[in-house]
Design a binder for these strands. Structure first.
Length: 160
DNA sequence: GCCAACGTTGGC
DNA sequence: GCCAACGTTGGC
């Protein structure tokens, strides 16, 4: 099956694309998802090798800053069992974990970040979930056409 | 800091 | 099952 494409959000003050680039083997777990719809996407749809647009939310400016690759498919998010974590979920049981995470490997930084305003201005991206008002999903599907258009805006002309 | 949008919780 | 209250997200 052809690989699929996703947009994943992170607040850079918590975890940024630069943090991902500096991680050992440029890979780390993308955790803290506490929304059932997003969890179900991670569980049912996100596959190793899928492409990820890494989006900085609550940033200045907000926007897509680079690409990552899904390095490991969904597995129990360790932070749900960690009382010291802000994502701790005391109701989740180890034998039946509620929350999942995936591993992301940093792929390519954009030559220039693609801001939310630029995404909105691109006709090819009119249907993107991240542009919808009130949208809060931290994992969202992206079409191949959208993927290509965003990479082009980011200055990655030769991208897949 | 404000506030709209949305998800979750809990009383009934 | 309804729905008000509350908490969170996230752009501005």
């Amino acid at each position: 099956m052809a690989r699929r494409y996703w947009l994943m959000k992170s607040e850079p003050s918590v975890f940024s694309f630069e943090d991902l680039a500096r991680a050992p083997r440029r890979t780390t777990h993308w955790d803290g998802v506490r929304n059932y719809q997003a969890r179900n996407l991670l569980r049912d749809e996100v596959r190793r090798g899928d492409g990820v647009l890494f989006y900085h939310s609550s940033a200045d400016p907000t926007g897509v800053v680079g690409t990552a690759v899904v390095a490991r498919e969904a597995y129990p998010d360790p932070s749900q069992f960690d009382p010291a974590s802000p994502h701790h979920d005391p109701k989740s049981k180890r034998e039946a974990p509620t929350w999942l995470c995936v591993d992301l490997r940093c792929d390519r930084a954009f030559r220039h970040a693609v801001t939310l305003a630029q995404l909105r201005a691109a006709p090819a991206l009119a249907g993107m979930g991240v542009l919808r008002k009130g949208n809060r999903l931290s994992v969202q599907p992206v079409t191949q056409a959208e993927w290509r258009a965003v990479l082009r805006l980011g200055g990655l002309e030769e991208a897949d």
